[in-house]
Design a protein around this nucleic acid. Structure first.
Lengths: 235, 235
DNA sequence: CACCACAAAGCTGTCATACAGGTTGATGTT
DNA sequence: AACATCAACCTGTATGACAGCTTTGTGGTG
């Protein structure tokens, strides 16, 4: 089948390279099946152990998908791995929550602009429904949070740029861990109401195809969120 | 030591969770050593094979670092895994180069603003040096590209937000694969000269602490880059 | 001819064992 | 106290084994 490059850098890492190259050279698309472990083991002249560890590496990055009994398949892009990477950065004090929010603000400000211009009617409806669902679940924070995250994800998708969706998704893991802090710091009913109203404003502006208003509302949302987190004592 | 959650979702995946939890609960910081494979195998009641595959998964995301003979250590954040994920998305036609550039423009526009306000004198010097190095290596594209990438990375670092640096780094893998296309499409000496001059303008503005001028120059840089790529036939 | 049931072959998940070679820490020497 | 040496420990890779799931092909049935 082919040679392994970098024979000194560890067999597994070479094998990861070989499998990646195989995907490229054969133009495999998401869903396509890879050779079996035994086949790769034979073709690449390494033990099945090595092939398996290489598969695990690629699966961790969501480049391939593994399943019992089935062959490994090429995976669609997914933010799962990125989510874990970000969480690790935060938990080891290499990234602060405020820095996350600064990046989110940058990204999501652009997202609402694009979403306002490009959203389909279906997407506008879904975005509005998530905002409504937030209001409906104001008494159950767990569910409220789920709709909040879904709202931002729906916006990202409506931007029609999968990379924006990927990045927004990458932040959702850590966000779901810090969201309750911000929510608890909004002690008054008005504070909580205002947060939901902000989402509705964003949804309306996007539905109306009004980027300026959408950006303004999103900006206000982030001002308010960051204020809430700071007042809760987050650096 | 502890129980494994989700016992039905695959032993390896449970073990990854257990190790992650261990890092959190013990507040391990980058550089700290993890238990040996044998120890984890005993404590988690799984075979060493499973522990190794779990380690490989975490190492693929750069959450831990492995080395022969040494114990695994907690890793500093690194964009290596994200780079591979993005490359995979592009090679499987799930992400287009233009979409990458749209995100980069969004991110890097914000970066130059922050860098203008926050850069240290050292950082300003490094940024300028990379721009100068670009001009000096105008005849050797390979080297020129290296300095171009280093220039953008230095800017990202000067923003003082590691998440921006992470994202910029994540794009460098695929960028280094498409950069030559853009360069070749700049057929005239003036075109090539203009590209380098743009970088110099950015460096000057950042050194002067002038965010508006920096943003304008960065914006122009992206306009020009995207034009170059399109004229080379990239969708 | 189409369809279904079923058995065989193939594949992955996990475990145990073995050994080469790198790393670390303790021991003893100067 | 500094250093050299070595034993214990640790990781990287290979092999073999087996349970359980999936795919495939076969042949029978309507």
């Amino acid at each position: 089948m082919g040679e392994l490059t970098d024979p000194g850098g560890g067999l597994v890492s070479s094998t990861v390279g070989a499998i990646t190259r195989l995907i490229r050279e054969q133009d495999l698309m998401p869903g396509d099946r890879l050779p079996s472990e035994a086949t790769l083991s034979r073709d690449l002249q390494v033990s099945r152990t090595v092939v398996r560890e290489a598969f695990r590496s690629l699966a961790a990055m969501r480049i391939i998908e593994l399943a019992t009994g089935k062959r490994a398949t090429v995976a669609p892009i997914d933010h799962g791995a990125m989510s874990l990477i970000i969480e690790h950065g935060v938990h080891t004090d290499q990234i602060s929550i405020q820095q996350i929010y600064d990046v989110r603000r940058t990204i999501e400000t652009r997202i609402v602009t694009l979403a306002s211009l490009r959203r389909s009617d279906d997407e506008a409806r879904i975005i509005r429904e998530e905002a409504e669902a937030m209001r409906a679940s104001i008494a159950t924070p767990e569910e409220l949070m789920r709709h909040d995250l879904a709202f931002h994800m729906a916006l990202a998708r409506a931007s029609k740029n999968p990379v924006f969706a990927l990045i927004v998704g990458a932040f959702q893991g850590i966000t779901s861990q810090t969201w309750p802090i911000g929510w608890r710091s909004r002690t008054s009913a008005e504070g909580r109401e205002a947060m939901i109203a902000n989402h509705e404003k964003i949804a309306e502006a996007v539905a109306d195809g009004d980027p300026e208003r959408a950006v303004a509302a999103m900006s206000q949302h982030f001002d308010e969120s960051v204020r809430a987190l700071i007042s809760a004592g987050l650096t």
